[in-house]
């Protein structure tokens, strides 16, 4: 799965840096599911995360209303995070491409373990940035050195002093 999927740090940092709102397709209300972990983390980092999940539609996850489909997400969205399997990711990507202009979608992001090359090619042709088989929480944490705190290799070497972000 990892082979030939290499994304540069500046590419990932640019995507995460410009993103304000994430639509999370497959968000779970169950606290110990991976999607819940990611939603909670991205919220604490200042992202707005809007959950999409037909099963929980009408309910609420971490303070945000759940809708059944991407089309029903009320706010502008820059980033679609796909927490579904590779097959489902195809249809979700097509839906996102169709909604891109209306919602402001610029990034299709498929979670760790999810890869659909055909869907990625369609999204790229439509001018969207695509990341597959990655977790935005892990990448955000890695690029901001938080992953290093847990003993993980960030792959980052730098002699530059990082600027602290204003709070």
């Amino acid at each position: 799965m990892e082979q030939d999927l290499a994304y540069s740090d500046p590419f990932l940092a640019d995507i995460l840096g410009r993103t304000r709102t994430i639509a999370m397709v497959g968000a779970s209300a169950n606290w110990n599911r991976p999607s819940h972990f990611v939603m909670k983390y991205m919220q604490t980092k200042g992202f707005r995360v809007l959950p999409v999940n037909p099963r929980d539609a009408g309910g609420e996850i971490l303070g945000e209303a759940v809708v059944a489909t991407l089309a029903e997400v009320a706010a502008p969205v820059d980033f679609v995070d796909i927490f579904r399997n590779a097959e489902a990711a195809g249809a979700i990507t097509d839906e996102a491409i169709a909604l891109a202009a209306e919602k402001g979608i610029r990034t299709i992001w498929m979670q760790l373990g999810v890869r659909n090359d055909a869907a990625a090619a369609r999204a790229s042709a439509a001018g969207l940035d695509v990341v597959m088989n990655r977790c935005p929480k892990i990448e955000f944490g890695r690029l901001n050195r938080e992953l290093s705190w847990g003993g993980f290799d960030s792959g980052i070497v730098s002699s530059r002093r990082r600027r602290m972000r204003p709070i």
Partner: peptide, 14 residues
């Protein structure tokens, strides 16, 4: 050798 010296140790940001 570069990672022997630098990995895990960038300048402390504060």
């Amino acid at each position: 050798e570069t990672r022997m010296i630098h990995a895990g140790s960038e300048p402390e940001p504060v």
